[in-house]
Amino acid sequence: MPVTNFPPLHAAGRGRGWYRGDCHVHSVYSDGELTPEQLAAGARAAGLDFIATTEHNTAEAHGAWAPHIDRDLLVILGEEVTTETGHWLALGIEPGQVVDWEYRARDGLIDRHLAEVHGVGGLCVAAHPHAPYPTGDFRYPYQGFDAVEVWNGLWSSDRPWSADNEAALAEWGRSLPADVRQGRWRPVMGNSDTHLAGQIGIPHTVVFAEELSTRAILAGIRAGRSWIAESATVELSLTATAGERGAEVGEHLKTLGEQVAVRVRLRGVRSATVSFHTDRGEVHRAALPDRGTGVAEWFTTAQESAFVRIEIRHPHGHMAAFTNPIILS
């Protein structure tokens, strides 16, 4: 297929800032029911700036997107590598590139294929690690993967936050203190795993990037400069300040022994509960107003907390948003 049929690597964007995107999307080119044209329209309606095309074990859709996107929407080329013992997302691969999937954890081949994706500047994401079906349960070590898809929205129409998502988040949370201490923590993502109409963007990942381009978005995800939202109605900021220095999600705040003020600003979730989490587990919880807009604050030091991250939940307990950590030292 002609190279001109592939989507461009840049979109117009808003310069340096936060961008919303869904990096796990299926179309009629694998087992989805929507065309690329319908998915592009759905992404715009959901308030997204970028999506990734991730068909199962094929690159057939790579050349189908260009006629349906303008400069307003970035489409990242990818694949859902669907192996016998777990699925993973290869994001930012070359046009027409297909990553092999015919192996399982016992074969010892995963590192070779991760290196193949990293070799073209791509990102490797462990997908829905506790999915409740045989091949979806992730059996590979996370070592070598760049991120983990903790929130997968495949059943979002009737189960916005499922037990397998809760298990994936808890697993990541338990490993985070050791990973931060070793200086190589692994960010989390949220994606819709869209197969049907009405699923796209539920949830999605909000990424800080230098521009709206494949390279910049992947760099933001890799660095953990991101948080996860159930929809575009949720607006959130997490900051930590010590003296005159400050940091946002995914950044490192170096303190001089001062008290650290951690502040959350939220819009779009009525009667929400915000919980603050560090290497000691959940350390603080606050209720936000019924009107759906509020601020919560908590204080700590780098001696007390190696990092801080937050979770936002609805009154009945399912997730509305959560963040990657701010690292304190």
Rank of each mutant, 00 (worst) to 15 (best):
A131V: 00
N152H: 08
S156I: 14
G173N: 12
L196K: 14
R186S: 06
D179H: 00
P134M: 14
S156C: 14
G153V: 08
P160W: 07
R184N: 12
V180W: 03
A170M: 09
S192C: 08
A197Y: 07
H130G: 07
G144V: 04
A170K: 07
N191V: 05
V188R: 03
S192E: 06
A197Q: 12
D179C: 01
S157C: 05
W155P: 01
N191A: 15
G183Y: 07
G190R: 02
R184E: 08
R186F: 09
G183M: 03
P129T: 03
N152M: 11
A163Q: 11
D137S: 05
S175P: 00
G153M: 04
S162D: 13
P187W: 00
S157Y: 10
S175A: 15
W185Y: 03
P134F: 15
G198N: 11
P177R: 08
D179E: 15
A163T: 05
A163V: 09
P141H: 00
D146C: 05
V150K: 01
P141A: 06
T135K: 08
G153P: 02
M189E: 06
S157E: 14
A163G: 06
P160F: 09
P134C: 06
Q182N: 12
Q182Y: 05
Q199W: 04
P141M: 09
V180K: 02
R184V: 07
T135P: 08
P141Q: 01
T194L: 14
D164H: 14
